[in-house]
């Protein structure tokens, strides 16, 4: 199934279809109107959060509800959250752990995928079978024994506890293996004739040809790690070690009914990935489209 999806990447998933530039048909005009209405609905929660965050705290909690605060908009809530809160620390924790998770996942999955695709070793079929079968295992099943394991290893409340269990993506090994299968073998055979080692062939021939799939896997893993809640929530308690999603969960109790500040925190937490998405929309959409059906 992954192969069928991968083929799509070359045909330009995110590309716009060449359209005839004549004036829009009636159906398209109606379609655009419907899409606009839906887009407004979809963007509404962002807009309402922004309006709330830009109000003074008293106005945010005042009835009747207003769109424009009588005293005007203010950045007070953002300032308070950035000064008093732990958002910068949590953002850093998320960035650091997600980056390490993504890097380690890429390295170990690509090496294993390459072996499964290219090296004819004894036990290969068995290994492949075990990895594919393990895709089925739902992460929530692991939380109890994993927590106990981390406790025994004395790793609770460390970056290690957050990172280690998240580097396993059997589905991504499968996706990479399928991609490597499609690369013509002749290129590597020529290099082997010249006496290049396996590792050199992998690093200098296979990897450069695999940039699209590597970035797709990286995007998929990074977004997953950045937004993961359940495991980091269990693995960490210490405020200074929380990731952004877990830290946000604690602000409601800390700030109480500070609605403007809650929304300011939520928006600031949402900002990094939204900005990245605005810049790399095409790559991210292609990454999700190529890896999404592989199952997670």
């Amino acid at each position: 199934m992954a192969t069928a999806v991968l083929d799509r990447s070359s045909s330009g998933v995110a590309e716009e279809r060449p359209q005839n530039r004549r004036k829009m048909s009636g159906a398209k005009v109606i379609g655009t109107i419907v899409a606009s209405i839906l887009a407004v609905i979809w963007l509404f929660p962002f807009a309402w959060a922004a309006v709330t965050a830009l109000k003074p705290e008293i106005e945010a909690a005042a009835t009747p509800i207003t769109w424009l605060p009588a005293s005007g908009f203010t950045l007070e809530a953002f300032a308070q959250v950035l000064n008093a809160g732990n958002l910068p620390t949590w953002t850093w924790n998320s960035l650091f752990t997600s980056a390490v998770i993504t890097a380690v996942t890429l390295v170990i999955s690509a090496l294993c995928g390459y072996a499964l695709s290219r090296i004819d070793f004894r036990g290969r079929k068995l290994l492949m079978g075990v990895i594919v079968a393990s895709i089925i295992i739902p992460p929530p099943v692991l939380i109890i024994p994993l927590f106990y394991q981390m406790l025994a290893l004395n790793l609770i409340d460390t970056y290690w506890a957050i990172i280690l269990p998240q580097v396993l993506h059997p589905a991504m090994v499968y996706v990479l293996k399928k991609f490597f299968d499609q690369i013509p073998k002749e290129l590597e055979e020529a290099a082997v004739m010249d006496g290049a080692s396996r590792m050199r062939v992998f690093l200098q021939i296979v990897l450069p040809l695999s940039k699209p799939i590597m970035s797709a896997v990286a995007i998929f893993v990074f977004i997953g790690a950045w937004n993961n809640f359940l495991w980091p929530f269990i693995a960490t308690n210490e405020t200074s070690l929380l990731t952004l999603p877990v830290g946000l969960q604690t602000i409601e109790s800390a700030f109480g009914i500070q609605y403007a500040q809650n929304m300011a925190s939520a928006l600031l937490a949402a900002l990094p990935l939204i900005v990245v998405f605005l810049f790399f929309q095409r790559q991210i959409i292609r990454g999700i489209s190529t890896t999404g059906l592989a199952g997670t």
Binding site: L38, W42, W48, I223, N227, L244, M263, A266, L273
Partner: peptide, 16 residues
């Protein structure tokens, strides 16, 4: 518009 919410952490969605 339709994909951006997917990039949010669950906690952000829940706060909204």
């Amino acid at each position: 518009s339709f994909f951006a919410p997917f990039l949010l952490a669950s906690t952000v969605v829940s706060l909204f």
